[in-house]
Design a binder for these strands. Structure first.
Lengths: 215, 215
DNA sequence: TAGATTGTTAATCGATTAACAATC
DNA sequence: TAGATTGTTAATCGATTAACAATC
């Protein structure tokens, strides 16, 4: 089990460094799939388009994982990163919204191998409630708080129209959710204690078109 | 048509500021939907959970859009931001991958009102090629370069398994694509001139679990 | 006018990186 | 050993923000 280096410097580690760890892990797992056993900060840097100093600094917040002159043992570093990121256990998620996106997320096979799975799905459409998506039965949104609480889920995924997102997020949090993945293009108003990660492909597109030649 | 403030300071504007503009635009459009006509940097700041100084500074890279003592006229600022971000015209996108995610993206109705639409869809599965998704006919991935070129598309969306992503991206770029939205959990190796925006929900989740109490 | 808010400057804050001793 | 790469320090770089004159 991971423990911060000394005392509790957990608050001294910049969030932007934390956000890079999953990218390191992803790259390492890819290397492992290609049966590579050793890598270096330089090789990782080239792969990820960032500097090798940055990678070494980010890792140094948590300990010493490499060997001078050699680099990093891939399986060992993968284990350590999983430990740091808390994904040695698998996290069940409560998904709200059984539209095209919600159903695609249930079927997405990229979650499991990386530590996550959809444990329950909810929708407000009575025509959908009671029907299946994969192994799951769609439940009424009115059951969110109770079900999340009973199942002990800590992560919620919001895949509903923007107008419904805030209420849905509140129901999830009421049930005990403390981390939200929000696909609705709207800011959620949440207590400080709740983490929110936003996914808005259009915002990403719009920040690219800024640089594109005016058609 | 937007022109940089003086000469060509386009390179002096930090990309991180550019990435916030779509969030400002999104918030403003939401206010407009609620028939609000005026806002202030303070109100926007509260809405977006950032500082009002940051908003004023970001906008100041491009001109003066507000009135002292009053704030910003919402419709005017929306127009200006759309102009800056190059989304007064609508951008057609070439989408590769007609799996669950790809089909969800074709049907997603959040693209059009914000300046984008899927103009073509490709897949490698011969069982899918020739069938419809919405109004679009799924075409063979071997046609990507030619089709993209003929249609003059500048934006590509990669929604294929990681192993296929690099080749697909190369085909798109060969046809003239210069901005990529990549849903595959892998880094793309692209020329400097090509913009890439990555969407990896799992990376987002993993950086949140870092902070969660160890189940 | 009095009150409010902008646009901008300068100071502060924080992140990135160059460089290198340590060492495998 | 010679060569390579780590972990870390200190310098650099860049982004954020406090503060306020200008002004609506």
């Amino acid at each position: 089990m991971y423990r911060p280096k000394e005392d509790d410097p957990i608050d001294d580690i910049p969030d932007i460094a934390i956000q890079r760890l999953p990218l390191y892990l992803r790259a390492l797992m890819q290397m492992q799939d290609h049966h590579q056993r050793i890598t270096s900060s330089q090789e990782l840097a080239q792969h990820l388009h960032i500097s090798s100093a940055q990678i070494r600094k980010d890792l140094s917040y948590f300990g010493e994982f490499g060997k001078q002159g050699t680099g990093y043992e891939i399986p060992y570093l993968i284990d350590q990163l999983k430990d740091i990121l808390n994904i040695n256990a698998t996290w069940g998620m409560a998904l709200v919204g059984a539209g095209d996106l919600g159903r695609a997320l249930v079927r997405y096979n990229g979650f499991r191998p990386r530590g996550f799975y959809v444990a329950a799905i909810f929708d407000s459409d009575h025509g959908k409630i009671g029907t299946h998506v994969g192994d799951l039965v769609i439940r009424d949104v009115s059951e969110i708080t109770r079900a999340v609480s009973e199942m002990g889920l800590r992560i919620g995924v919001v895949a509903v129209p923007p107008a419904a997102a805030q209420a849905v997020a509140e129901a999830l949090v009421k049930g005990g959710v403390i981390a939200l993945l929000n696909y609705a293009p709207i800011m959620l108003n949440m207590p400080e204690s709740v983490r929110v990660h936003y996914i808005d492909p259009v915002a990403g597109l719009q920040s690219m078109t800024y640089y594109l030649p005016h058609a």
